[in-house]
Amino acid sequence: MKLTNKQIAIIDQTLIDKGVVYEEIKLELLDHIVTDIELETEESNFEIAFSKAMLKWEKELEEINPLEKIVTPRIVKEKFSKITKNLFKFSLLAVVIFSVLITTITTLKPEEYVYYNLHLFFYSVFSLVCLINIISMYFIWKLKIKTIYGRFFQVYVGYTAFSLYKIYSGLNRLSDLSRHYSYKSIFRNFFEWFFDGFYFFMAIYLVIVAVEHFRVVKKYKLI
Rank of each mutant, 00 (worst) to 15 (best):
I70C: 04
I64E: 04
T103N: 04
I25C: 02
L143Y: 11
V76M: 08
F195H: 10
Y199W: 10
E62K: 15
F198G: 00
S81G: 08
P73K: 00
D12V: 00
M202Y: 10
S99W: 00
F200E: 00
M137C: 10
Y149E: 14
K77V: 03
F121S: 10
T104F: 14
G19D: 10
G197F: 01
I64H: 05
I102Q: 06
T103K: 01
S44R: 12
K26A: 03
I70M: 12
V207D: 02
K142I: 06
H180T: 15
I132T: 09
E112M: 15
K56N: 06
A210K: 03
F122V: 05
I33L: 09
Y113T: 10
Y168A: 01
F46R: 01
E28S: 12
K26S: 03
Y123D: 05
N172L: 15
F162C: 01
I70E: 15
T106H: 08
V125C: 10
L92Y: 10
K82I: 09
E47M: 09
I10Y: 09
E58C: 04
F80R: 08
L87V: 03
L143M: 14
I48F: 07
E58I: 03
T4K: 14
E47T: 14
E112S: 12
R215L: 10
F121G: 07
V155C: 09
I33A: 02
L222P: 07
G19S: 05
K79S: 08
L61S: 09
V71C: 06
A94Y: 11
E192T: 09
F194C: 01
T147Q: 05
D196H: 13
A94I: 05
Y181F: 15
I33C: 03
Y22M: 02
V21T: 15
T35A: 13
F214T: 02
Y115W: 11
V207Y: 02
I145W: 06
E63D: 14
E58S: 13
F195L: 10
A9S: 10
N172D: 11
I75C: 10
P66V: 13
V217G: 01
L87D: 05
I167R: 00
Y22W: 07
A53C: 06
R179I: 12
S136D: 08
P110C: 03
N189L: 14
L118C: 09
H32E: 08
D176M: 14
F195T: 11
K89T: 07
V125F: 11
I64D: 07
